[in-house]
Every structure is written in C-alpha cells, then in structure tokens.
C-alpha cells in the first residue's frame, strides 16, 4: 500500500468570489522510501499540495490518505498529534527557533512528544552528526549559515523518526553549493534512514537529483516521471 495517497484532490481558494484553482483533480501515490520532488513554476500549487499532505490545510474536495487513514477524518487535536508522530517538516525559512541551539532545536519535537531525555539526546546527536553538524551543537541559528540552518531543520524533521519528511523549497534561499550539499545529505538519509522524502523545488540541478519528478502546472498534474536507477 502506498504510504501517501491523494484522491481527486481539489483546493479552490475564494470559491464564492473569484475562484483560484490551486489544485485540480490531483491523484498521486507515494511509496515508502521514495525520493520525490514536486516541481512547477511559482504559483503552480506545490506549497498547497505539500500543505494538504501534511494536514496543515484541508482540501476543498478529494481525500488525503496516510497509511490508509483519511486525515480529514481525524479530529483537530488528533491531527496535531498525528503530524507530530508521522510527518517531518522542513520549510523554506523560519524553521528554527532563534533562542535555541542546534541541539535544542533538534530535540524539541522529541521533547514535545515527552520522549525519554537520554534517548532524545542520543538521537539528536546522531542526526546532527548525519547532517555533518557535530561541531555546531551549541550554536544558535544566527551563528549558522543558511545551508547549516537548513541542515539543522532536516535533522530536526528526521529526529523523531516520522513516516516521511515534507520539505517545501528547502533550497530556495541557499547558494547552489549549499543547495547541492543539502540535497546530498537528504539523498544519503533517504538511503541510510530509509526515510521517504517529498520536496518541492524549481531549481533544475535539484530536480536532477530526484528519482521521481512530479510536475504541476496550474494545479494540475503535468508529468509524473520515475527515473530508472
């Protein structure tokens, strides 16, 4: 069974006035362990799609199933809990809490889940090591470069071992070297932690690294390309 399914997904903003079709009839399956990028020009619905899958926003029509569960059927409190346990998020910016160190930022979700402090710390140290930031444990976000900040964000998203990680244009604010570095790390984690990644981008070099490329145009599926290894 696919880990994520969208079924005839529609998102229409301002339906009563001047409707904006952000997503039109989108049916997609994502399998466990995939490394997928959502591409498309600005305004094509990438953020909207990721928000739907992440349960941050509700579809106008259609369904999102995670592991077979329709997330629209979850009550609000359960949905938040569901997100906390199942989904890791990386945003374009404002991922980190400025007053917390890298280590504290990464530990935050596990602490919110009331996990055992010792294993929380071990796991946080492990993922920070995996993203190559063992030497920046006690740095505040303001003391890190943009690329390092996004690596902390990826580490945080992974730390609590969610079912998959959603990343909305994680490289948009990075120079190409940092962007490639972040992509390498994500690809490595995809293998080493067998973590499912879905990320959006409109950076051509990033697209080349993905194994599956879903292209949106005006909210509709334009192309769904799976590269052979």
């Amino acid at each position: 069974m696919p880990i994520i399914q969208t079924k005839q997904l529609f998102k229409i903003y301002n339906e009563d006035t001047i409707p904006v079709y952000a997503l039109r009839d989108l049916s997609l399956d994502f399998e466990e362990g995939e490394f997928t990028t959502i591409v498309g020009p600005s305004g094509s619905g990438k953020t909207t799609l990721l928000n739907m899958i992440g349960g941050l926003d509700t579809p106008t029509r259609g369904e999102v199933l995670i592991d077979g569960t329709n997330i629209a059927s979850l009550r609000k409190g359960d949905l938040i809990d569901f997100r906390l346990r199942n989904i890791g998020f990386v945003f374009q910016s404002y991922n980190l809490i400025p007053v917390l160190t890298a280590l504290e930022n990464v530990s935050l979700i596990m602490e919110l889940q009331n996990q055992d402090p010792k294993s929380t710390r071990e796991r946080a140290l492990q993922v920070l090591d995996e993203v190559g930031l063992s030497d920046k444990l006690h740095s505040k976000p303001s003391e890190l470069s943009g690329g390092q900040q996004q690596r902390v964000a990826v580490a945080r998203a992974l730390a609590s071992r969610p079912k998959f990680v959603l990343a909305d244009e994680p490289t948009a604010n990075l120079d190409s070297k940092s962007a490639m570095n972040l992509l390498d790390i994500m690809a490595k984690l995809n293998v080493e932690e067998s973590m499912t990644f879905i990320f959006s981008t409109h950076d051509q070099r990033v697209i080349e690294r993905a194994r599956r490329v879903v292209t949106l145009v005006d909210g509709a599926l334009h192309e769904d390309l799976v590269k052979s290894k």
Binding site: G77, D81, R83, L84, F91, I97, P98, L108, L112, A157
Partner: peptide, 16 residues
C-alpha cells in the same frame, strides 16, 4: 507569526 506557525505545523499543540 512564522515561528509560531512553524511550531504548530511541526506538532506543538494549541494548549502548549
């Protein structure tokens, strides 16, 4: 706003 939104997105409950 962004930071609070991010916290809620990653699973911080409203009560918290």
């Amino acid at each position: 706003v962004q930071e609070l939104g991010m916290l809620m997105a990653i699973g911080m409950t409203k009560v918290k």
